[in-house]
Simulated assay, not measured.
Amino acid sequence: MARSSTPHIDPKGVPIAETILLPGDPLRAKFIAETFLSDVQQFNEVRNMLGFTGTYRGKPVSVMGTGMGIPSISLYSYELIHDFGVKNLIRVGSCGAMQEGMELYDVVIAQGASTDFEDYVAQFDLPGTWAPLSSYRLLSKAAAVAEERGQRTHVGNVLSSDVFYSADTTALSRWAKLGVLAVEMESVGLFANAAAAGVDALGIFTVSDHIITHEETTPAERQTAFTGMIEIALEAL
C-alpha cells in the first residue's frame, strides 16, 4: 500500500511529479530546480536529501538528490516509484570515462549498467545473470535531442561500481576492454527497480574525469557546470 510519507521522503502535501531527475548531490538538485524549473516547491528535506517540484515548459517535473552508491539510489527510487507514483526516472550525474577518444564534458547515455555489486541484482532470484537496461523510449529521445544540439555523446554500457577506492588497480581496465564506456555508482539499482516495477528509467552523465588521461573537473564544476545533460534530459521528457 502506497504511503503519503516514508522515513526518507516527507512531501508534506507538495506533489511529486511522475517525471523526476535524480542527481546524486542534493545541492545539484537545488541548482537544477532554481535554474531550469518554474513555480518551484520543495517537497523533501529529510536527511538534507533535497527534493523539488516545478514545471518545465508547462509540464510538472521533480528533481531530488539520491546520495552516493547503489543502496542509496535504490532506496529512494523504490519509494518514489511505489509510494509516490513516479513513472519516469532519469539519473543525471558525473562519470569517469574509460575509453580513448572521450573528453571532459562529453555526455554518456547509459544503454545498460554492469556492476561489481552482485548482491542487489541477486535479490530477484533469477536463474542466471541479469543485465539491467535503461528504457529505450527515454534513451532514443535523449539521443535524438543530443544529436540535434550537437552535443558530443556516447551511448552504451556503463559500470555501476560499489568501490570508489579499489585495491584492484586493474579492475577498470578489464571492464574497459569489454567496451564499457564509463564508471559511475548508481544506475544498476535504478534500472533494476524500474524494470521490476514496469516503469521507465535512464542514466545521463557528464564526463567529469578520465581514467586513462587522469584529467578531471573541479567539485564546483560538477555541481553547477554540467548543464548540457540536464537540458538533454528535460527536452527528452
Rank of each mutant, 00 (worst) to 15 (best):
P7E: 04
I9P: 04
D10I: 08
K12C: 10
K12R: 11
K12G: 03
G13D: 02
V14D: 11
P15L: 08
E18P: 03
T19D: 03
L21K: 04
G24C: 11
P26M: 08
L27G: 00
R28M: 07
K30P: 01
K30M: 12
F31N: 01
F31K: 08
I32F: 00
I32W: 00
A33D: 04
E34Y: 04
F36P: 14
F36S: 14
Q42C: 10
F43G: 11
R47G: 09
N48M: 11
N48W: 08
F52K: 05
Y56H: 10
Y56Q: 06
R57L: 13
K59Y: 15
P60S: 10
S62V: 13
M64S: 09
T66N: 07
G67I: 13
M68W: 12
G69K: 04
I70R: 07
P71R: 02
P71M: 05
P71K: 07
S72W: 12
I73V: 14
Y76S: 00
S77C: 11
S77Y: 03
E79D: 03
H82A: 06
H82I: 00
G85Q: 11
V86F: 02
R91H: 05
G93I: 00
S94R: 04
S94A: 11
C95G: 06
M98R: 06
Q99F: 01
E100R: 09
G101Q: 03
M102W: 05
D106A: 06
A110Y: 09
A113L: 04
S114E: 10
T115W: 05
D116Y: 01
E118N: 12
D119R: 15
D119Q: 12
F124I: 13
F124Q: 13
G128V: 08
T129H: 13
A131V: 15
L133V: 14
L133H: 12
S134A: 15
S134G: 15
R137C: 00
A143N: 10
A144V: 06
V145R: 04
E147N: 13
E147Q: 15
R149H: 09
Q151H: 07
H154C: 09
V155R: 00
N157Y: 10
V158Y: 03
L159N: 03
T170V: 03
A171Q: 10
A171E: 09
L172Y: 08
S173C: 01
R174C: 13
A176D: 12
A176Q: 03
L178T: 14
G179E: 10
V180M: 11
L181R: 07
E184F: 01
E184T: 08
M185W: 10
S187C: 14
V188I: 12
L190K: 14
A194R: 08
A195Y: 00
A195M: 05
A197D: 14
G198D: 02
A201Y: 09
L202S: 12
F205I: 00
T206V: 09
D209R: 14
H210T: 07
E215D: 09
E215V: 02
T218E: 11
R222C: 12
Q223A: 12
F226A: 03
I232A: 07
E235V: 13
